[in-house]
Computed example of a mutant assay.
Amino acid sequence: MKIPDIFYVEDDVDYAFFMQSAIQEVRETLNLTIVEDGSEALTRLQSFADSKVKPKLILLDLNLPGLSGLDLLKFIRDIPYLKSIPVILFSTSDNPEDVKASIEFGANAYLTKPDGYDNLVKCVHSLHDFWFNQHLRLN
């Protein structure tokens, strides 16, 4: 099993494609795994825990088929092996209640998906700089 640097749960295949392109533009060597369904993501996350491997960062869409991003976040935070992985909710919603719930359930951050590809690339640059260059260097 190849360990992803970023495990991304996103049901919009077009947005997932743009994210894949943006990540490759920011850093070609980053390994991105995309899962389209909350239930499938749960299975993959459990297999990471069972295999004692983990991604460096998890991005979760809020509204997913199967299980929601919040449900997945609860699962991640309840599994000792996975709970230290930074999790970012990455959604089109900018509803303050969604942001509040995400933080209360243990998200490290909540980002509203940017409009346009150039803004997505800038967002991925910022994510990469903080979570891979700054944050992980401290651990």
Results as ranks from 00 to 15, higher is better:
F48M: 08
R44T: 12
Y117V: 04
S68Q: 01
K56T: 07
S102E: 06
A107F: 06
K52G: 12
K2T: 13
G69V: 00
P86K: 01
P65D: 00
D37F: 01
L127S: 09
E28Q: 12
D50I: 02
T29S: 15
F130R: 07
V26Y: 08
P114N: 00
S68E: 01
F18T: 13
L62Y: 04
L70H: 04
H128N: 15
K2Y: 05
N108I: 01
Q24W: 02
E36G: 13
G116E: 08
D78Q: 08
T112Q: 09
L42E: 13
Y110D: 10
F132W: 13
D98E: 13
A41C: 06
L120W: 04
S21Q: 08
N63V: 04
D94I: 08
D5R: 05
I3Y: 00
H135M: 14
L67R: 00
E40C: 06
R44H: 14
L127C: 12
A49L: 04
T33M: 12
L60W: 00
L89D: 14
D5P: 11
V9L: 01
D37L: 03
W131R: 06
E28K: 11
K2E: 15
K74P: 14
G38C: 05
T33W: 00
E40R: 04
T112R: 05
Q20D: 14
L82F: 01
Q134T: 15
D94M: 10
D94F: 10
F130A: 11
K100W: 04
I76H: 00
K52C: 09
V124P: 15
L82Q: 02
L120M: 09
V53C: 11
I34G: 13
T29C: 07
I6Q: 06
P96F: 02
L136Y: 14
V87H: 02
M1K: 08
I23G: 09
R44G: 11
T33C: 06
K2S: 15
L64M: 01
D50G: 09
Y117P: 09
L64A: 02
E25Y: 03
S21L: 09
Y117F: 13
V13I: 06
D37Y: 01
C123E: 12
K113G: 12
P80C: 00
N119K: 08
A22W: 06
V124F: 10
T29M: 08
L89W: 11
Q46K: 06
D115L: 10
L45C: 05
L136W: 14
A101N: 14
W131C: 07
A101M: 11
L111F: 14
A16I: 05
I3C: 09
I3W: 01
R77M: 03
V26L: 03
L136R: 15
H135K: 12
N133Q: 15
D118W: 00
F132T: 13
D129C: 10
R137C: 15
N108L: 01
D50T: 09
W131H: 08
